[in-house]
């Protein structure tokens, strides 16, 4: 296992170098932010020259690339106030790392919450569907799974906003939290309120976007669980468990489910990039200021260093996510041994 881990981690290094080269070339192809700054009448050309010099943009492409990669590695492993994955064009005075760290909590709550919720909802429905294959419950579950999988998130989000926000007034339609919260009989600023009130308020605001993302996720997880469970309940060892006199609940929970969850557990590792990457469309619909929105703004606004930093993080998470999936697989299944 240790040899396997070391080998995989070493393999990640050349891969990330190749990925970074592709990211750098693709994003610098669409023009660099310095020339955009030159067109800004409020910025003096001399300052742009200094900035270009500081970021080595007056040197040939390989040196630019190398310096950017060095900056990325240094500010990842030795973060200081002065560095941080490059400057931001759209948010002057700040850097890519500060921007990303600022958007990350919301995205973690949104995507992490919806993935967790979809798994919690989907796995029991998947098990039920498998145990009652082609029965009424299975058909209803399967219908909703496909309904969720084929529903466009922007349309479903807008429908939820109309029904639960505008008509019923149950949930807020956009934003991340209220400005003022009631505390001790009076309204206080959100950040001055007790943490529990803040948490409840945030959960209330998150309810609709998390519902949208969960509905999209439930279908997939439910179908995975169902097919995995269907395969397992026909196995000989499930019959053996019945033959030794185990009650049906033990047969299903202990003998079938444990085996059926192995592929599901490994899939969890692969959701890692999705948790950080954010949900561009849903964040846009609900006016949430998370990673998805930042990515969109950075790419469209030619905010090169921010966009490159986000793509680098996403790529790293894909690589580490599949490594995590392999590790989880070995943990869940004793037959799997890496050497």
């Amino acid at each position: 296992m240790r040899n396997f881990l070391v080998r995989r981690l070493l393999l990640i290094v050349p891969m990330i170098v190749a990925i970074s080269l592709i990211i750098f070339i693709l994003l610098t192809l669409q023009g660099d932010p310095f020339h955009q700054l030159l067109m800004n009448p409020h910025v003096r050309p001399e300052d742009v020259q200094i900035l270009m010099h500081n970021w080595n943009w007056d040197k040939p492409l390989p040196i630019r690339y190398f310096n950017w990669l060095k900056e990325f590695v240094v500010s990842t492993f030795a973060p200081r106030a002065g560095n941080g994955w490059g400057f931001s064009l759209l948010a002057p005075g700040t850097n890519a790392r500060a921007l990303i760290l600022q958007k990350l909590p919301l995205t973690l709550a949104l995507s992490g919450g919806s993935i967790l919720l979809s798994i919690i909802i989907a796995v029991p429905i998947g098990i039920f569907s498998a145990l009652h294959q082609y029965g009424f419950g299975d058909n209803v579950g399967t219908f909703f799974a496909f309904f969720g999988m084929s529903m466009p998130s922007f349309w479903f989000g807008i429908m939820l906003i109309i029904i639960f926000g505008l008509k019923l007034h149950w949930f807020p339609i956009s934003g991340m939290h209220s400005d003022m919260l009631p505390a001790g009989g009076q309204l206080v600023d959100f950040y001055a309120a007790p943490w529990l009130a803040r948490l409840v308020n945030r959960a209330w605001y998150m309810a609709l976007p998390v519902s949208v993302l969960s509905l999209l996720g439930v279908g997939g997880w439910m179908r995975y669980t169902r097919s995995s469970m269907l395969e397992v309940v026909r196995q000989d060892y499930v019959r053996t468990a019945r033959a030794k006199g185990a009650p049906e609940s033990v047969v299903i929970r202990k003998h079938a489910l444990r085996n059926a969850l192995i592929p599901i557990i490994t899939l969890v590792g692969l959701t890692l990039p999705g948790i950080v990457g954010g949900a561009m469309i849903t964040e846009q619909v609900f006016a949430l200021d998370g990673m998805g929105r930042l990515t969109l703004q950075a790419v469209l606004g030619n905010d090169m260093f921010v966009a490159m930093a986000i793509l680098m993080i996403d790529s790293l998470l894909v690589l580490f996510g599949s490594l995590l999936a392999d590790i989880l697989y070995a943990v869940a299944d004793p037959r799997v041994r890496y050497s």
């Binding site: 000989d236 060892y237 019959r239 053996t240 033959a243 006199g245 009650p247 444990r258 085996n259 869940a332």
Partner: peptide, 24 residues
């Protein structure tokens, strides 16, 4: 019936390779 199975009457199957649960 469950109390009889495995206690008073038990059974060995044809496929030893697949009759045991791989994760226990």
């Amino acid at each position: 019936m469950r109390l009889i199975r495995g206690d008073k009457i038990s059974m060995i199957f044809q496929e030893p390779m697949t009759s045991l649960n791989p994760v226990y």
